[in-house]
């Protein structure tokens, strides 16, 4: 079965016809061209597809598009405003938080959810919030440092 869904993606209202078995990740990447959301393990284990739904971190690879009716979705593409990097993106860039970069969109979105709720997290809170995100380059130290730097910059959007 197909249905019309209306979602808000990065502030823009999107109405589209989607089959019931459409996954949010495929919808974002293939139908909306938002390929910043990465397809990693494709089974809810790696966090590379983390997006925010109503401000909460969610895994796009195990979320049905039809269940997102009327919800606000934010992807990595929504982070930079007018061509300027967000505080988190800048912190990841400056602190070498991205190595190969594949896990980075998911890391940043998970960190974004954390910093909105807890603007000054301690290291354990960062580790817990990023617990579901894998980095195969194992660059965790710099990733945690990047999140701390973004929190300290105080200039988050």
């Amino acid at each position: 079965m197909k249905r019309i869904v209306s979602l808000k993606i990065n502030g823009k209202t999107v109405d589209d016809v989607v089959p019931d078995n459409s996954l949010l990740m495929d919808f974002l990447r293939d139908k909306q061209g938002l390929t910043g959301t990465k397809k990693g393990c494709d089974g809810g284990e790696c966090g590379a597809c983390t997006v925010l739904i109503n401000g909460h971190p969610r895994l796009a690879c195990i979320t049905l598009t039809a269940s997102c009716e009327d919800q606000k979705i934010e992807t990595i593409e929504g982070q930079s405003k007018s061509g300027r990097l967000s505080a988190l993106q800048r912190a990841f860039h400056e602190n070498l938080g991205a190595q190969c970069g594949f896990c980075t969109p998911g890391m940043i979105m998970a960190a974004e959810a954390l910093l909105r709720k807890t603007p000054n997290p301690d290291i354990d809170q960062i580790k817990t919030a990023l617990g579901g995100n894998l980095c195969r380059c194992t660059g965790y130290t710099k990733i945690i440092k990047s999140v701390q730097a973004a929190a300290m910059s105080g200039a988050r959007q």
Binding site: G47, H56, R58, A110, A129, G131, G132, N133
Partner: peptide, 9 residues
């Protein structure tokens, strides 16, 4: 249980 993104739902 699982990770924070799973526990949301």
């Amino acid at each position: 249980v699982a990770g924070p993104s799973h526990r949301q739902v």
